[in-house]
């Protein structure tokens, strides 16, 4: 897909999204004008702003049609194959990081993510990989759980129990 086509699709998508927002406000029954005795309705702000978004998207479409924007004249690929691979695989890995966080917990999921990225994509040696894969979760645990008392997702009970033991060990040292 060329940059020119991408700009067209994006403007259309944003126009439709703006209409969708207006419809959401309308279908939720929120007042978009003045409510006697109460002032501006709660739907006024999002509704009229969404209309503004729709008009701005139409303006972009007009500028695309008339070839005013540099993007509308650009016939190069919107995302070249190298980028598709690099950015695509990164997004997929982050997606898996989030997905697995609910199952095996954020710490184990983070370790798998770092392993895949540093060893798989970066092709670094095992020494560097181990340093990052083990160092990052330990630093995160120390900073967020020990210092900030912020508990990160620990996954299913079987994985959670591992962290319970780590916590017990920590508490035995601290108190």
């Amino acid at each position: 897909m060329s940059v020119r086509t991408a700009e067209l699709f994006m403007a259309i998508a944003m126009f439709l999204a703006s209409l969708g927002l207006m419809w959401t406000v309308y279908s939720d029954g929120l007042a978009i004008g003045w409510v006697a005795g109460r002032g501006p309705g709660s739907g006024m702000w999002p509704f009229w702003l969404s209309l503004g978004m729709a008009l701005a998207s139409l303006w972009t479409l007009w500028r695309w049609y008339t070839g005013v924007t540099p993007e509308s004249r650009n016939r190069e690929a919107y995302i070249d194959p190298d980028t598709v691979f690099m950015v695509g695989i990164t997004v997929v890995l982050i997606f898996l990081l989030l997905l697995l966080s609910n199952i095996i917990g954020l710490y184990f999921s983070m370790m798998l993510f770092l392993l895949a990225y540093v060893r798989g994509l970066g092709r670094h040696g095992w020494g560097v990989t181990a340093g990052v894969v083990l160092g990052m979760p330990v630093a995160t645990y120390m900073l967020f759980e020990v210092a900030l008392n912020k508990y990160l997702p620990r996954g299913l009970p079987v994985f959670e129990s591992i962290f319970m033991r780590i916590d017990d060990f920590r508490y035995s040292l601290m108190y």
């Binding site: 990164t90 890995l93 982050i94 993510f113 770092l114 990225y117 970066g122 560097v128 990052v132 990052m136």
Partner: peptide, 8 residues
């Protein structure tokens, strides 16, 4: 390839 995953 080390910096990026740490930031993510």
């Amino acid at each position: 390839s080390i910096l990026a995953p740490i930031i993510f």
